[in-house]
Simulated assay, not measured.
Amino acid sequence: MGIVYPNSQSVKLGVVLRRSPGVTAWVRWAWKATAVLPGAPQASWKILRQEGDVTEYHASTHDLTLYVSDTEAYAHELQAEQPSVYVVLRPIEVEADAAPWNILHVTASPYEAQDYCDSGEETVERVEMPAPVLAWVSEFVEQFHVEEEFVKRRRDRLDVDRKDHGIGDARISQVSDVYRAPTVPPRGAPE
């Protein structure tokens, strides 16, 4: 079992990666996260299925943790046409036939997935959320999500009849709004 945080719930998800032949001369294998397995036991690159050159692996098992503070993100994901779980992968340097990915994290938050995408160091794969996980996330959101009312910020009223603020330097009298810096008289010159 993973780390237990207050105001959170976790479930184990096995991550399935598919290896298929690459389509270019530069890439020998193409890897893709294809599924997650709710309640899966621990595994380390266990072969699930092999058909010709295509192999599916139960790469590893991770905790999918839902936090009360992130219910807005989960609610947003549940409104998607196809709710998904996001698998965060980091490439590792390995020998030719070894698995080139380290699975860092699994999340149901599209916001957190976007943060990983922004770093550019990880690859984020979107995987369809299985029905049991979808029901669990929906129940979590229903129980803990509180819709926050949007409050528009009001601007301070500006007195337009007063002198303009921020035009040039107040120490220099000028007609236009061109900025001019005050000059310092040379040493010894009369002021």
Rank of each mutant, 00 (worst) to 15 (best):
2 G>E: 10
183 T>E: 15
156 D>N: 05
110 P>M: 06
184 V>K: 15
118 D>Q: 11
155 R>A: 14
153 R>I: 07
182 P>K: 15
97 D>R: 08
147 E>I: 15
96 A>T: 15
40 A>G: 10
144 F>C: 13
79 Q>D: 11
22 G>Y: 04
169 D>W: 00
29 W>L: 02
95 E>M: 09
80 A>I: 13
59 A>H: 03
19 R>L: 02
171 R>A: 07
159 D>N: 13
156 D>V: 11
65 T>R: 13
148 E>I: 03
118 D>A: 15
104 L>I: 14
174 Q>P: 02
62 H>N: 11
166 G>A: 06
11 V>A: 05
80 A>D: 02
8 S>A: 15
48 L>A: 08
179 Y>N: 10
62 H>R: 13
129 M>F: 02
7 N>K: 12
40 A>F: 03
85 V>F: 00
116 Y>G: 01
3 I>V: 12
161 D>M: 14
99 A>L: 12
166 G>I: 04
46 K>R: 15
113 A>I: 05
40 A>R: 07
166 G>R: 09
51 E>R: 11
160 V>H: 04
88 V>R: 01
124 V>E: 03
59 A>C: 04
44 S>D: 12
171 R>E: 08
58 H>K: 09
28 R>V: 10
183 T>M: 13
166 G>F: 08
186 P>H: 07
62 H>A: 01
9 Q>M: 11
66 L>G: 10
49 R>E: 11
181 A>C: 13
41 P>D: 03
169 D>V: 00
124 V>A: 02
177 D>R: 12
104 L>N: 13
156 D>Q: 10
37 L>F: 06
180 R>V: 14
14 G>H: 08
171 R>H: 10
28 R>H: 06
147 E>T: 14
107 T>N: 07
130 P>H: 02
149 E>F: 07
3 I>K: 14
164 D>S: 06
